[in-house]
Design a protein around this nucleic acid. Structure first.
Length: 600
RNA sequence: GGCACCGUAGUUCAACGGAUAGAACGGAGGUUUCCGGAGCCUCAGAUACAGGUUCGAUUCCUGUCGGUGCUACCA
């Protein structure tokens, strides 16, 4: 048995019915089938208005015949139809959704997954940090998106590869390095700082020192521009970068040392965030040379052109992307030069079908240019490249600015979240049986869960706001609420087990109404929700599904006693629903990278 | 200036072109002798503005206003 996606099933059946009755051939996917809105009877609704343009008759006439045709075609699935204006509301048979419930109980692994990918290889690149400062809130959105999307695609039958690209070369890296060397070359051990924080400290320090020099020069009568250009530190750092490019061991060695520390710091944070290791790490310091060769090839092909000063460009003005530099006049590479090489390397190493770049929307233009350029170069893999562009995480006052000290540090934020979770858990008082270690790991998973959910529930494309003042919530539409609901299902199942009751694939007592029915509907909707998340590359769809399920269960829980149900049939069925809710919540939270505790 | 993205309750978010625009937080009010009250139930509260396309527009198009980003021989 395979997971049943009801929306495509109903689209297919409707398309065939229309073909047979009216000789009308339509792509089933174009038929509008959606969940029936609350306040109307039915489970799924076929919207008939779009069919009007084919002049088959009135919506009422089509609806009546189509409704009957569907009932005849899917007798095991459809119980009734109800026509309201141009909406054909379809009600499923209890037998249909019981099949699904029983299947999910027996084979949750199979039932909660899909095979949309047929093993296609997808690489996801994230978070691709610079190696001169620690990770912040923006990286967290990136990391959680990339991680969650990898899990979602895997669950949908794709073979996924996690890739990280370190932006480890450039003048900004040299800034940290320079300040660090000037001020004593401390190791992380000596400073008591994680490697990434150490580098970050000196990046900030460089800026301070440079600022001071600029102010001095301005006091001597220079204007801002001149002061910037003439500041000794500015010249020093440029010189340092030149020596790095030239391979001077006196620069390369300490650079390597510092990066090693930074990577160790990042690794530590990744682990704390519950992220699996990356399958492959790329380093711009290793790919930029190959980029120049690609530029040479492009020149030979006539895709690029050389300006009199020797710089190399691509003209994308007919795609409204303007002219873009791909190689400097001195022959050194720019950002995009390296990206050309990395894109090729990924394809050569893994033979990927799709390459997803999880990168902020500030780089929309850059990514358009990159993909357009590779297409011009005739690279076959360009077609499979996709920029998953996500919005920045802003503060209520606007963008985070390191200069103003408003950057929300990833490690600090996680500490805070964990502490808050600990306080809330102690207050609830349900965790006396846990030892200190389990308790600590629980607080961690609650704090982290709240943070992940907060960042994932929003449509990736949207810019979102984080207000440090009123911290991330543990009540309402939160990961915590979903985890809490899971813990309640677990508690109930424990209690049932003590009394000798186990979830069984029983039939539904009829008729079902209210919260019970809503819960059932939410459960069998899962495969369609997963498919939607894959189509849109959106963990937010999964996050919102999880919330809706948790809410449906909470209402059910209040309204319908399980162990104290009136009849045995009711008790057994409600126990089944509880077991399935638990499975679904655990699986769905897992796709968001969030743990599902049994008590909290 | 050019290009791109975005304007939905006080605030943070939902709504493949479909039915009376859903939630959460905050506010007001209820709910615990009953399986876990981080819950459940009421109430008040929103599509920036003006046109257009459509049977139907928060959604698509045009314009206006407002916000953000990109537009570096930085990465």
């Amino acid at each position: 048995m395979r997971p049943i996606r009801l929306i495509p099933l109903l689209q297919q059946a409707s398309a065939q019915a229309l073909a047979d009755r009216y000789g009308l051939t339509l792509d089933p996917a174009t038929l509008v089938v959606q969940r029936t809105s609350r306040d109307h009877t039915g489970d799924y609704t076929l919207v008939l208005f779009p069919l009007m343009k084919h002049r088959l008759g009135s919506p009422e006439a089509i609806g009546q015949t189509l409704g009957q045709d569907l009932l005849d075609r899917l007798p095991d699935t459809l119980a009734a139809f109800d026509l309201v204006k141009g909406f054909l509301n379809l009600t499923l048979t209890p037998a249909a959704w019981c099949r699904w419930l029983h299947f999910a109980l027996a084979e949750p692994e199979a039932a909660l997954r899909l095979d949309l990918g047929s093993g296609q290889k997808v690489m996801l690149e994230f978070p691709s940090p610079n190696t001169n400062k620690p990770l912040h809130l923006g990286h967290l959105r990136n990391l959680f998106l990339g991680d969650s999307l990898t899990r979602i695609l895997t669950a949908a039958g794709f073979t996924t590869i996690r890739a990280n690209l370190y932006n480890d070369k450039g003048i900004h890296i040299c800034k940290s390095l320079l300040a660090w060397q000037r001020e004593g070359c401390q190791t992380p051990e000596q400073s008591g700082l994680k490697g990434d924080h150490l580098a970050g400290k000196y990046y900030v320090r460089f800026d301070q020192l440079l600022r001071e020099q600029i102010e001095q020069l301005k006091a001597q009568g220079l204007d801002e521009e001149q002061a910037k250009a003439q500041a000794p530190l500015q010249q020093e750092v440029q010189e340092l970068y030149r020596r790095w490019e030239a391979g001077d061991p006196a620069v390369v060695e300490p650079w390597r040392q510092m990066n090693t520390w930074v990577y160790a710091g990042f690794e530590q944070t990744f682990r704390r965030l519950g992220l699996p290791p990356f399958d492959v790490n790329y380093y711009e310091s290793e790919t930029y040379l190959r980029g120049r060769e690609i530029v040479e090839e492009g020149l030979a092909q006539g895709v690029f052109f050389r300006k009199p000063d020797g710089s190399v460009w691509i003209d994308l003005s007919d795609e409204k992307l303007d002219e873009k530099l791909v190689l400097r006049s001195d022959g050194t590479s720019v950002y995009i030069t390296q990206d050309l090489a990395t894109a090729e390397l990924k394809y050569q190493q893994f033979g990927i079908d799709r390459s997803i770049y999880v990168i902020g929307n500030e780089q929309d233009y850059h990514m358009k240019v990159l993909i357009a350029t590779l297409k011009r170069l005739g690279k076959p893999y360009a077609e499979g490249m996709y920029h998953l562009s996500y919005g920045m995480v802003d503060l209520p006052t606007g963008r985070m600015k390191s200069r103003e000290g408003t950057v929300v540090d990833a490690d600090d934020l996680l500490d805070e979240m964990t502490a808050t979770a600990a306080a809330a858990t102690a207050e609830l008082g349900k965790t006396e049986s846990l030892d200190a270690q389990s308790l600590e790991s629980l607080h961690h998973s609650l704090g982290l869960g709240a943070l992940k959910y907060f960042l994932l529930k929003v449509d990736p494309a949207r810019r979102m706001v984080f207000n440090p003042e009123d911290s991330i919530d543990f009540k309402g539409h939160t990961g915590t609420f979903i985890q809490y609901t899971h813990a309640r299902t677990a508690a109930l199942l424990r209690k049932a087990d003590e009394q000798g009751y186990r979830p069984q694939p029983v039939a539904a007592p009829e008729p079902l109404a209210g919260a019970e029915l809503d819960l059932v509907r939410q459960l069998y909707h899962w495969p369609d929700a997963l498919a939607e998340a894959v189509r849109d590359y959106s963990p937010a769809v999964v996050a919102n599904y999880a919330y809706d399920l948790a809410r449906a269960y909470s209402r059910f829980y209040t309204e319908a006693p399980v162990l104290k149900a009136d009849t045995v049939a009711q008790r057994d069925f409600r126990l089944l629903l509880t077991a399935l809710t638990r499975q679904h919540l655990a699986t769905v939270l897992g796709l968001l990278g969030i743990e599902a505790p049994d008590r909290m």
